[in-house]
Write a protein that binds this DNA or RNA. Structure first.
Length: 841
RNA sequence: GCAGGGAUGCCGGAGCGGUCAAACGGGGCAGACUCAAAAUCUGCUGGCUUAGUGCCUUCACAGGUUCGAUUCCUGUUCCCUGCACCA
């Protein structure tokens, strides 16, 4: 590969380099990219009946280059889009930019470039790089979320949500990232850390805007059954939504009118409740301990619990007695109320009933604080003695010490006890979810302004729809402290839309995941100035037939987008209720054991690879090396193998000629079938393996039939679009290969017997070669001639000429019709086709 | 702890119950072509070997089904991913 300029020149002068002329892949790429653009080859046709919407998660425009990870991701979608086009679908394959977000703003603070400027440059840059890759996007449909013609509709949607009560404002403990200087949604906190900068988050009490995603919790759960997504992602969403069915129990506080509600999935253990435990952070505890002896312990525990709760798992379970009691709803007994850090504040009611005999945590807590234990469930297969218990028994069984429910089994008891609570109006059946409402406020500049004005008299007033968009002012100061929007007084100080009195604009912006929750709809009608989109156009294209993106969005973007779809369906904007019928999670490209990325400093850019081998080689390699769902390691040598293959493939031109035979027909049809299947099932590697096999097989031939080559070029074109376009035209075609049809498969010609025969023949031939070698070795003769006369049954119908070529130079094959008449001196005269014999000199 | 996915030769990775010592690619070795490289091509690349369409041991480990298992079933170990004090 490496050749100094001097050497090249020398070779060129000498002239023996001419036939090895290197193909200029970059020139081919440029040529066909221009041609595709000129012919609007990828513009999605709204009218056509059979539609296919192929979509990749749109990128955040920051990097100044694309690395092999990007190349792989985008190539996967591009391959599918091209394959579907060939199969007669009208394909919508758009690209846009998720352009609002922190990096642009941080860059602004650091490098003194305005985020708008920074983003605009980044978009232009990435777009150019994407075009260099020859990705078949319909660029007419491009969008970027940071432009008013897009975020206007964010604001409009927000107002609709406000009207329907889906958007609301409340003061609540929220996750705060010190480094990013903003609040975060629950979904954006991973293991107590900020999803973006990975610094630890803290809890703050703030007045913020939320979206009531919980209202759709059940539907979001059920909808998962309808879609073809990786089971992993579905499971993650199920876990996140976290539905559990159980019973609500209301405890009255002793010496008070107040009540405490708890949620349990084990109402059958209700008679075993020995105490209640409230989360330290819950307001109830603050209230109970106010001005009592317990207050000191409370403050101490609260302090150590202020960080995100998920980190507490390994921490010791601390707690204290509040000094107050509740009354058991069925027995009327006194139940002490404790506070502890092992109860999750925002799940259920933040208070749990503790049954030490039948829950391990409660058991440990009871032991620690010397609380008595009462057994109320006996297992079916043995008898438990309370005094000897070393751990809780959390299985089901028969009720004891629970009159009047004794002798019922757990399942019956759950039912009866809950009904009894219902009758007494102290509880009932209840369903709890883990999912929380979605916090969308962000204390940052580079995002969609929330269309709200706070009026001294009228409170929070929505900006009237006709005044949208509320444009993000350009003129702000980036100090690195506080929200830059506060520095623009014109923006902040406005009149109240209702009373025209003094008002202040909301300066929080909407978090970026709001923008990306509906962008796939805007692609269907991205130029619309009058409405968010034309319902008919969206109805035509949606749902997305194939969505492609990273698994890291499993409970972020992918959940939000489903929520938005359901909300917009309720607004009667959509007819569907699931946005993405199929989802594919691509694998990650690693190098030196780490994900290829700027921060790891291990990137191989598309540009450098493209210069060296051409982009199609990179695509072939990335598609070949493993299935698209697998993580792969970048291999500098590996791509050379793909490069050799591309060159060998192109060299097949030198041998065009002849006609296809049975075996070739069989092979090409079978291959066509495999390739089609491999595109449809995201198993590109398997198709390519067989494809390479075919190329190798044909390379051994003296002549390669044109129609075979044509089909070969067609079938690999989704992987190697530029090279194939070039070859297609070299084959004398006038049309663009991108608008060609996928070749028909002739099932009749697929005949595995033929292949078996071929294999048998090739075995026989190698046998003959072996025999030949042995004879040579054994006889060690130079001058004498040895004649061997063989008619192996496999070769009965084999073309004599071909046989000769298959064998070595020393072997000559002649057709004779009868052994007896064979005359070595006069071979030609007696030879007749159809019955070969092998003659060895 | 729970759920999901894996484990194939030096590496990546095909293997739809026999045609499997295991495709294809990389790497390694040897050879051809070259003054020499590069490129290209050929052969070899588990062990034994009298060199044979031969024998032996292999597809995480242990069993089972079968005339026959890399492929099917059961258990075990290890790896990855997600969830996890959810009451």
């Amino acid at each position: 590969m490496k050749r100094t300029k001097k050497e090249v020149v020398k070779k060129d002068v000498e002239g023996d380099f001419s036939e090895e002329q290197k193909t200029d892949f970059n020139a081919i790429e440029k040529k066909w990219q221009a041609e595709w653009e000129k012919n609007k080859a990828f513009v999605a046709d709204d009218k056509a009946k059979e539609k296919f919407y192929c979509l990749e998660m749109f990128p955040y425009p920051s990097a100044s280059y694309l690395h092999m990870g990007h190349v792989r991701n985008y190539s996967i979608g591009d391959t599918i889009a091209r394959f579907k086009r060939m199969n007669g679908f009208s394909v919508l394959y758009p690209m846009g930019f998720d352009a609002f977000g922190l990096p642009a703003e941080n860059a602004a603070i650091k490098a003194k470039i305005h985020p708008a400027e920074y983003t605009k440059n980044a978009i232009e840059n990435i777009k150019r790089l994407m075009k260099d890759l020859g990705l078949s996007y319909d660029w007419d449909r491009e969008l970027a979320t940071c432009y008013p013609d897009y975020y206007k509709w964010n604001q409009w949607l927000f107002l609709q949500m406000l009207k329907k009560g889906i958007a609301y404002r409340k003061k609540a403990p929220v996750n705060w990232c010190e480094k990013c200087n903003t609040v975060l949604a629950n979904e954006e906190v991973i293991d107590g850390k900020c999803w973006r900068c990975e610094s630890e988050t803290t809890i703050k009490q703030l007045d913020q805007w939320f979206l009531k995603i919980t209202e759709y919790a059940d539907e979001l759960l059920k909808g998962l059954d309808k879609i073809e997504w990786p089971s992993k992602v579905k499971e993650m969403q199920r876990n996140w939504i976290g539905k559990s069915e159980g019973t609500k129990v209301i405890f009255k506080l002793d010496n008070s009118d107040k009540t405490v509600e708890v949620f349990t999935t084990r109402p059958d253990t209700l008679f075993g409740v020995m105490f209640l435990v409230a989360a330290v952070q819950s307001p109830l505890v603050a209230e109970l301990v106010k001005g009592t002896k317990a207050e000191k312990g409370y403050l101490k525990l609260l302090k150590s619990t202020s960080v995100a709760q998920k980190l507490e798992v390994d921490k010791e379970k601390g707690g204290f007695f509040t000094g107050k009691y509740a009354i058991h709803p069925l027995t009327g007994g006194q139940i002490p109320i404790y506070a502890s850090n092992f109860v999750i504040a925002d799940y259920g009611t933040g208070v749990v009933m503790a049954v030490p005999a039948h829950d391990q945590r409660d058991f440990e807590f009871a032991k620690k604080y010397k609380i008595p234990i009462k057994l109320v469930i006996q297992p079916d297969d043995r008898k438990i003695d309370v005094l000897k218990m070393k751990e809780a028994y959390d299985g089901l069984g028969i009720l004891v010490n629970s009159a009047p429910f004794n002798d019922l089994n757990s399942e019956e008891a759950k039912e009866h006890i809950t009904k009894s609570l219902e009758d007494k109006k102290v509880g009932g059946f209840s369903t709890e979810y883990k999912i929380r409402d979605w916090l969308i406020s962000r204390q940052r500049y580079w995002g969609t302004p929330i269309p709200i004005i706070y009026c001294e008299k009228c409170g929070a007033v929505p900006v009237p729809e006709k005044n949208l968009p509320v444009e993000l002012p350009v003129d702000v100061k980036f100090t690195g402290k506080g929200n830059p929007l506060l520095t623009n007084e014109k923006f902040v100080n406005v009149k109240c839309p209702k009373c025209s009195g003094k008002g202040k604009r909301e300066t929080d912006t909407i978090g970026g995941f709001f923008d990306s929750s509906w962008y796939y709809l805007r692609y269907c009608d991205n130029q619309n100035k009058k409405e968010i989109f034309d319902k008919k156009k969206v109805a035509h294209w949606m749902p997305v037939d194939q969505y492609i993106g990273g698994v890291e969005h499993a409970v972020l973007h992918l959940l939000y987008a489903r929520f938005f779809t359901k909300f917009m369906r309720d607004l009667k904007l959509l007819e569907i209720d699931e946005p993405f019928s199929k989802l594919f999670n691509q694998g990650i490209v690693h190098k030196d054991g780490e994900r290829m990325s700027k921060s790891h400093g291990n990137t191989i850019t598309a540009e450098e690879i493209s210069k060296k081998y051409g982009i199609d080689t990179a695509r072939l390699f990335l598609s070949f090396v493993a299935g698209p769902d697998k993580d792969i390691d970048w291999d500098d040598k590996g791509i050379e193998g793909a490069f050799r293959m591309v060159n060998r493939f192109m060299r097949m031109f030198d041998k065009i000629g002849g006609r296809s035979d049975e075996i070739m027909d069989h092979k090409i049809n079978k291959l066509l079938k495999t390739m089609g299947h491999s595109y449809d099932h995201f198993e590109f590697n398997k198709g390519i393996i067989e494809f390479m096999d075919m190329v190798n097989y044909l390379s051994e031939k003296d002549q390669i039939p044109k129609e075979i080559l044509e089909r070969l070029v067609l079938m690999i074109s989704p992987i190697m679009p530029h090279v194939c376009e070039e070859m297609w035209h070299k084959l004398g075609k006038k049309s663009l290969i991108v608008s060609e049809k996928w070749p028909a498969i002739d099932e009749k010609k697929i005949n595995d017997k033929i292949e078996q025969q071929e294999k048998a023949i090739s075995n026989t031939l190698s046998d003959i070669q072996n025999i030949l070698r042995i004879i040579k070795e054994k006889t060690n003769n130079e001058g004498e001639k040895i004649f061997l006369y063989v008619i192996p049954p496999e070769l009965k119908n084999y073309d004599t000429e071909k046989l000769g070529k298959k064998l070595s130079k020393e072997v000559k094959v002649f057709a004779v019709n009868d052994k007896a008449k064979y005359d070595p001196q006069n071979k030609a005269g007696k030879a007749k086709p159809g019955k070969p014999a092998i003659y060895i000199e």
